[in-house]
Write a protein that binds this DNA or RNA. Sequence first.
DNA 1: CCGTTGTATGTTGTATACAAAATATCGTAT
DNA 2: ATACGATATTTTGTATACAACATACAACGG
Lengths: 207, 207
Amino acid sequence: MLRGQIYDHRLAPGQRLDEAVLAEQLGISRTPLREALKVLSAEGLVDLQPHKGCFVTELTLRDLEEIFPIMATLEGRVAHEVAAKRTAAQLKSLDVLHDKLERHAAAGDVNRYYETNYVFHDQLQECAGNRWLQIVIGDLRKLLKLSRHHSLRLEGRLTASLAEHRALMQALHRQDADAAEQVMRGHLLAQLDALRELLLANEVVHG
Amino acid sequence: MLRGQIYDHRLAPGQRLDEAVLAEQLGISRTPLREALKVLSAEGLVDLQPHKGCFVTELTLRDLEEIFPIMATLEGRVAHEVAAKRTAAQLKSLDVLHDKLERHAAAGDVNRYYETNYVFHDQLQECAGNRWLQIVIGDLRKLLKLSRHHSLRLEGRLTASLAEHRALMQALHRQDADAAEQVMRGHLLAQLDALRELLLANEVVHG
DNA sequence: CCGTTGTATGTTGTATACAAAATATCGTAT
DNA sequence: ATACGATATTTTGTATACAACATACAACGG
């Protein structure tokens, strides 16, 4: 419940969380709430300051500049592995997901595209077969979900994203590991570029 | 306290942790203990199974095979960054640490070498200036500390490790980012090779 | 008038008591 | 004798009550 409220900004970044108030809102006592906050703190979603309080994490542009290159490296590695060791069945399941992406993009349905994109990356990690790599990437992705801004909302980004996915699928089909890695790295870094543009544009407007 | 007890295997891998017993041993009540276990669980040091209990994580050889390549990738990236953007002062501080490594190696002091090696890698990450990269690497390192086996104990590994560090320093001096990355990756993967050898040898002996 | 210290208030941190779930034990029946 | 089931016990999960700490404000002294 807390994760959900943080992701959709009902609990806004930077906001202080009063345990008593929050516990009552959730209809539980402070004990399990505190255990939950400890977990979220370890995940980096909230900042737990001893004797001070609990604050929802605020991701700065600088954080994004740091995290995305790491994601690019790790997901690039995933793509490399999958291209090298994929089975025909795995490729098939990825093709199915990619087709969904194509359809959602054609329909201009950004939300469904976003969801399917998430599933696709998850499936890809599954195929890579490295459990810990999956955990590390998952942890970082949880963090990135803090920034509600979706780069896909940017003019032309959806089309570009789809093109990158097409290139990735091609590389996977011809088992070109190096190409797959490069495409995936580019895919992630392009998202960062789009996000940066979005955030800086926002700054001009609001601050 | 718990982390310490887990690392030095006073709480052994696989062992079940009884909350009441453990709380009494630590001289605290179950409430703060449970909060601590939640944190350790998020770090991956213990496995918290709902309504079942808490178990100290056991790292298998397979886990190591998965984690070390990730570390190699990430620390390789660190080395790349540092080689590219290091200041003269940073290089100096790294040189100082490397000299310590040389001395401890010459004295055959494996423990001090291990400690200094830890500080060196930490310092290197500091120089890279990517806070999140440091966090991710730190999280993985905490996990690796679960396996008490030090590859340095293996015959000839100390010498090899030192040689790798020398090569790294040379790459940093001449600002050869690609070489630094390659050396670092090799350094981590060589540790995995050594560990694998150690573990498989143990298996033959014990079962 | 500013700085410091004491006190009051509120929030975090901890302990204890109780409820719910899982496991172990014992008895019974086949 | 073994398998199944009910009960008893242990252990996890939750709620409440209390203690410790931090902050804000006010009073006092310089």
